[in-house]
Design a protein around this nucleic acid. Structure first.
Lengths: 240, 240
DNA sequence: ATTATCTAGTTGTCTATACCAGTTGATTTA
DNA sequence: TAAATCAACTGGTATAGACAACTAGATAAT
């Protein structure tokens, strides 16, 4: 595994070797790998050199160190849980409520500078503006305004957005949403929003902006939502 | 900057010191920092020890190495939109602000039913109750109440929680936080909270409850925070 | 003037060694 | 039997030194 006369650094050769063993399953998750001193002796190299290899693998999440015990193959590769990346409809069903939609407005407008930048299009390009009230068990839950480039979805209709937009995107168009960023912020309801959500002016609301991206990082949509704070909590699980 | 007889590792002291210099602007982005040999000579420590400190800062995105030329302050701080788990201190630093803490209250109380259930302990078992004001650039950012089982951290002191509790947990105790759940909710500030946060009664606030778990799923803490909505947005990135 | 070389600086790699600190299980002691 | 001690492991921190690879600027040779 180690060639001292290779132009490649020794620590790098060892690092690659161990990584390969993990990926091939020769070292199983949770298994203890040979100790640092053992590697050093086996290949007649310095323990510090072994540490450099192992350090890199620990930083990459392949290995976990435990002082006094040993170094172990990480049980889970550092991967983001896809939890939380759900549509409004799925979200509501998961909460045991029946999702619903009322379309307030469906039109095509030219993108302003901010939208254009976020959607990776030119300022002035056509985008759909979709304003909807999202219901849960027939009661208002959120006010939602979505912006989608017309070029991506040329044949969008008001009928489609009356149901689940995500289901249409994923099942009819075959697009896959790869990633999303969400920004959450607390605020208080203004008069118009309060009326639509059936709450009082000044009542707390949760603002959520979601930007969704397809495979190659292509932006699909920008969605700004206003949730009733008395009915909605945002929950997220994180692992590392 | 370096105290050789401190219980804290030398490389760690240096790492903190350099990070501070960057954050305070004493070292500007793009600027070359003193060479490894220079640090070593200045504090009479080994160059390898200096390298360990610098390595960590490079991994954290604070510094960039250039072989043959030197080591430089990174031009752009990697904006890490809470991709993983970060402490309040890390979070604030990532936002370019200086974290701070003011301990309001530090005491031991018996766990009520809800806490006991969440922390996997018996009702009535001792837990620390730590109430702190978290500052960002010397201004109140959040009001935080943490509950930690005394059995897990028998020797917690007010001094420790005046700094970064997470750093203590991970560095001193060797615990690793494996996962966490967070629940976010919008609300409005009550009188007392408003006073402590220097905002008006009725102003919007973001409530965040975080439950953190160690390796085997052992609950470490329950933290309830109240963030000023005018200063704090919660951002999350998701992939699948 | 241009080119080549040298030199002094940087980081990168590697060694051999030392001791500290935590874990575990065997051994001794009470 | 139970508790305390010990010994042999583990990774964590730190040292001093060596040479390689690379960079930039000064110097020498053409």
């Amino acid at each position: 595994m180690i060639n001292k006369h290779s132009p490649l650094p020794i620590y790098y050769q060892l690092e690659q070797g161990i990584r390969e063993m993990i990926e091939k399953g020769e070292l199983e998750p949770g298994e203890m790998i040979p100790s640092e001193r053992e590697w050093a002796e086996r290949y007649d190299i310095s323990r510090m050199t072994v540490r450099q290899a192992i350090n890199n693998l620990v930083n990459d999440g392949y290995l976990v160190r435990q002082r006094g015990k040993g170094t172990f193959v990480a049980t889970k590769k550092i991967e983001q849980p896809l939890k939380g990346l759900t549509s409004f409809s799925e979200d509501m069903r998961a909460r045991g409520m029946e999702p619903g939609t009322k379309v307030l407005n469906f039109c095509i407008i030219p993108a302003n500078a901010s939208l254009a930048q976020q959607l990776h299009i030119q300022e002035g390009d056509d985008v759909y503006e979709i304003r909807r009230i999202r219901l849960a068990d027939q009661l208002p839950m959120a006010l939602e305004t979505a912006y989608v480039p017309c070029s991506l979805v040329p044949n969008l209709t008001k009928e489609i957005v009356s149901g689940s937009f995500y289901e249409f995107i994923e099942h009819q168009l075959g697009f896959t949403i790869r990633s999303a960023t969400q920004v959450l912020e607390a605020s208080i309801a203004r008069k118009m929003e309060a009326d639509l959500l059936h709450i009082k002016e000044g009542a707390p609301v949760l603002l959520i902006q979601r930007n969704s991206y397809l495979e190659a990082g292509q932006p699909l949509e920008v969605v700004k939502s206003i949730y009733r704070a008395d009915r909605y909590k945002f929950m997220i699980e994180m692992e590392r």
